Simulated scan of single mutants.
Amino acid sequence: MANHEEQKPLMSQDEEEKDIYKGEKEPETKNAEFDDHFNESTMAPLDQPEDVYVAQPEVPQRQPWRTGLFSCMGSSDEFVGSDLEVCVLGLFAPCVLYGSTMERLYPGQSTFSSHCMAYSSLYFMGHFLFNGNFLAPCFSFPSRSALRHSHNLEGCGESLVNATGCCSSLVQDEERLERCESVLDFAAHFCCHQCALCQEGREIRRRTVHPAHRPRYYMTTAPPAQQVMSSSQ
């Protein structure tokens, strides 16, 4: 008769490892570094997030106008010739002064002609219908707001609050302050139209250069590399 070998029961992998290392003592330092790293005393609770400090961007301080609303002759500085030109244009040709201001504010090919023609049309229409320049200020007053925004200038309301100290809460509310400044820009153009145009012309000539005098930059291109024709084999 054939000898039947004794069949060992199947053992799992964990039981096999226990059988191999049977009788050996497990060292006390096993996983010591792992336990020290994840000690409960050093772990921060998940329900208590750390305080994160986010730096707020600094708002640049607004600058005052360099000339006043009624400083028709300027401030007797190095721009005295330009101030006299602005005064003459504001008195006899406000359409040209407005077009020149818009050309410096929004440089472009047809900026001067388009704004000058639109202003002239409203100027003559206002004199024909209402015997006065009452339509052009409604068209030109946004230039004052655009000039304030582009150069971060103080408005009439903010300068008045800084000078008197009253209604200081108005300066802290940006949206409310901007609505108030827009109304004051319209009032300045409607009540003192020529003075407002002259002030804007003096201010933008002190801060920007005429587009015709700005340096022009041309894109330089490198010449192509020298090509050599190889003889065909």
Rank of each mutant, 00 (worst) to 15 (best):
N39P: 00
D35I: 05
D47H: 14
G81K: 05
D14L: 13
L91N: 04
N31G: 00
L105E: 06
L105Q: 12
S12L: 04
F92V: 15
P60F: 04
D14I: 13
Y123T: 08
S114R: 08
D14H: 10
D36K: 13
R62Q: 15
S145V: 10
M43W: 05
Y119C: 07
R144P: 00
M117F: 05
C116M: 11
P142Q: 08
A44S: 08
V88P: 00
D77P: 02
P45S: 11
F70A: 13
N131D: 14
C156N: 12
G126M: 02
L46H: 09
D36I: 07
V52N: 04
S75C: 13
V54C: 03
E85P: 00
N152H: 11
F79T: 00
D51Y: 12
N133T: 08
E58L: 09
D19Q: 11
K25F: 12
N39D: 13
D77C: 03
S71G: 08
Y119S: 08
Q56L: 11
Y123E: 12
S41M: 01
P60D: 05
L122Q: 03
Y21H: 03
S150A: 14
Q109T: 09
M73I: 07
R104A: 07
H151Q: 14
Q13Y: 04
T67Y: 01
H149N: 13
N39V: 01
E40N: 04
N31H: 09
R148V: 07
T67A: 07
H115C: 04
E50L: 09
S121W: 02
N131K: 11
H149L: 11
E16H: 01
L69S: 02
E16T: 02
L122F: 12
G157Y: 14
S120F: 12
E15Y: 00
G74V: 00
S140H: 03
T111M: 08
C72H: 01
S143N: 06
D77L: 01
L69K: 06
H127R: 11
Y106I: 14
A32N: 02
F38C: 02
L46W: 09
Y123M: 13
L84M: 07
S143T: 09
S113A: 10
